[in-house]
Nucleic acid binder design. Structure first.
Lengths: 194, 194
DNA sequence: ACCTGAACACCGTTCAAGT
DNA sequence: ACCTGAACACCGTTCAAGT
């Protein structure tokens, strides 16, 4: 990439971070180009779709969560690891407002720039879920897509001003549904101590 | 209301029903006016906001669900009534795509045309929840807003093409989290017989 | 190679002018 | 009273013209 192009790319990404933080994932692309003092075509050249821009904004976080999940799988009890990952994945979705619908839509669109990130999250969660199920700590009638859906639903709640205050509490409620008897009890205890 | 105005009102509502069914709650208002062969200002005169249009589209359903809840409260066991209402409320939210975010946003905006419908649903659910809790059939650490949030989250899942196939199953998972020991077991049995 | 911004086809919303 | 549609200020997306 030419030096001037690289500079524009970095600048756009930095401005996009600010604008998307303020206005959410459906922020005006025109606005981003304007604030970066760059032609609208330059934005489209570097980020041909809204998804590709968000992919660039989220990539680091997705990689970090993936790496974290490896650590969780090695060092924590399966039910603890599963819930910790769930919290992390919800937090990732809440990095920017409105990202959850985009990420969810990408799950069945291999052409989407967010597809790989999506699948990475889906598969990471699936593995932690499968381990917890193998140990009898998570209910057997949910699969990786169910887990993805629950994460998305909880993240969506956080984006709704009227419901955001309850989102964290409901994460606990849903977690307890995900885990089986003893494990659910333990999470409940943890939560009531907090 | 003058006869010609009434005719336009009914026509707009009928066209809006079709267009919103096809394109969801964020359908183009221009498109609705165009298809009704009516000036754009006429649409705005009858429905000053998008919310007021959706309110008119949903009113009957909200009333029906409210009436149904009275019957449920009188004739069914508290845990059964709660879950039946939850299913009904999710179904109402899924009448048109994208209605859930509007309904949720209205919950804390008394100026919204959807505010009354929203509060009606919230309070109806709260009453059924309180009864189930009083009988020890529902967990005590959720309130009416939590219930509303769970309904909204489940309805939102139904709007996501990638997750819609799991929405009904997850309704069962969430229901089991809502109910306490014996009641949750009963719902589980019901579901595995289905 | 890369950048620019006008052009096109859409929105939501308002409001002066008509009947 | 009620209706109409032009006008305004925005979008996303494309692409000919420039450097």
């Amino acid at each position: 990439m030419r030096a001037d192009a690289r500079k524009n790319y970095e600048l756009l990404l930095s401005v996009a971070h600010d604008v998307v933080t303020e206005h959410g994932a459906d922020a005006s692309l025109r606005d981003i180009a304007r604030k970066a003092e760059v032609g609208l075509g330059t934005l489209y050249r570097h980020f041909p779709t809204r998804e590709s821009l968000l992919e660039a904004l989220l990539r680091e976080d997705v990689d970090a969560l993936t790496a974290e999940s490896v650590r969780l799988e090695e060092s924590r009890a399966s039910e603890e690891a599963l819930i910790a990952w769930l919290r992390g994945c919800v937090a990732l979705n809440n990095e920017y407002r409105g990202v959850t619908s985009l990420l969810t839509a990408a799950l069945e669109d291999p052409e989407s720039a967010l597809y790989n990130s999506c699948v990475a999250l889906h598969d990471t969660g699936s593995r932690l879920l499968a381990r917890a199920q193998a140990e009898g700590m998570a209910r057997a009638d949910v699969d990786g897509t169910d887990l993805f859906a629950l994460v998305a639903a909880l993240a969506w709640l956080h984006d709704q001003p009227a419901l955001a205050p309850r989102a964290d509490h409901l994460l606990g409620v849903v977690s307890s549904a995900l885990l089986t008897g003893e494990a659910a009890y333990a999470v409940g205890q943890e939560r009531s101590r907090a």
